[in-house]
Nucleic acid binder design. Sequence first.
DNA 1: CGGGAGCTTGACATTAATCAAGATCGGTGG
DNA 2: CCACCGATCTTGATTAATGTCAAGCTCCCG
Lengths: 246, 246
Amino acid sequence: MPSPSPRIPRVQNNCPTCPWRPGTELSVLDREEATSLDRKRTRVVVMPGQYVFQQGEACLGLHAVAAGVVAIRRSDGHGNSALVRLVHAGQTLGYRDFFARSAYTADAQALTRTEVCFLDGEQIRCLLDCKPQFSLRFLERMSEDLEQAETSILQQTASPVRARFATLVLALRERYGKADSRGRLTIDLPMSRRDIAQALGARVETVVRTIRALEADGVLRSDGRRLFVPDLDKLLDEVEQVEPAV
Amino acid sequence: MPSPSPRIPRVQNNCPTCPWRPGTELSVLDREEATSLDRKRTRVVVMPGQYVFQQGEACLGLHAVAAGVVAIRRSDGHGNSALVRLVHAGQTLGYRDFFARSAYTADAQALTRTEVCFLDGEQIRCLLDCKPQFSLRFLERMSEDLEQAETSILQQTASPVRARFATLVLALRERYGKADSRGRLTIDLPMSRRDIAQALGARVETVVRTIRALEADGVLRSDGRRLFVPDLDKLLDEVEQVEPAV
DNA sequence: CGGGAGCTTGACATTAATCAAGATCGGTGG
DNA sequence: CCACCGATCTTGATTAATGTCAAGCTCCCG
């Protein structure tokens, strides 16, 4: 079933029984460990536009998204910023700077109403020390993120905005799309034009025009944040590059 | 010859006494552990242009660069590729796909004559399991790499090629530059124009013109792979963006 | 010497950014 | 309920940055 989080699961208010835990790095913890982690856990509700953390703040532990979507942004001092990644319900958040023992080097901004648990750093470090599999899970997780970051670097120079947009839509499909019986796809984008632009490394105007162009070519139709994709293959074609035959 | 790495240290042919080890993630190993790792260690010499590993190959362990420089490249199937990072003597190599338990997702190409040790995966996994600090060191290392990758994503859209080139040169300064008594800098780039272009996400022609422009503005002089920077401040200024006063 | 790879330059094409209005949407207070 | 407001989205005209294509050049290596 392709509907990962249309309705937000009722998240239990403690770690040992948290329905998200099996899917996270915390899955390797036993009940006792989860319980002790839970004791110092705190949870906050973050409204759209608000920040879970911001660049420069001290990183004192790990976050876990219980509901909602969070955008990770990097910005320089000149008003430029890039949306580096989305973090969804059921994922841990802000582990990078925690492991680097540095202050936050990115902003985490809620895109929707979001609930976030905060896990005490000292306890996490303790678990990292005595539970090798815990570290290993994070090594895997960070590998994925690094892999995606590198893909994104390559794509930014190798593909035009149009193809990058298509790639983004396809990536969002799994979480935010649903197909009808005829295979036609509806995708509710979790982000604004501005966010899309920052994720693609382009300007808002360029994103809008790109969407128009795709509409003109019958690849999709767009209504605000809702996209209709009548034929997935056409969208997939957009990702491909023109390559002269040998 | 432009002597890329001034003098290559005489690297001992075994892990426990390897002069590089203290600076790597392997520094947390005790003598015994290093010795056992050494038993299955192999070492190869890789000539410029040759690959330590290539995209798609199975990843069976870790590499460690004993001498030389290795470029990590990602490429798509259309002849595009990006140079995502350089790995220098004294650094481990290829850990990302090892932790992800996947085949290599990048190429590692020697830029100079390079010597590389290969460490058996099974032994590494064993150490990861019983030596928490070993994993932690890799978590730190990967954090840095991820941080740099994200910086690079931002920079690619936030700064023009000229500023990106200046940033690259400044990053290479520490390893490949030397200053004379008057603070004038000479930097021997370890890479070709093509490599520079791929690191900047630009075309070779654009890189050449950018260097010309910097010469015209007196920021540096260039002779093949050798750069002269008469005034470091001017180069630092190139990294800055124009920002209107408040 | 000769040949090829890497480097350089020029002319030109193209993508995407910039600047400048509008249009639309969503919330808020009258 | 409606009018207004700011934020977001859209569109058009223009420009700037970079890519593309096509030569020549240079240097190293056989």
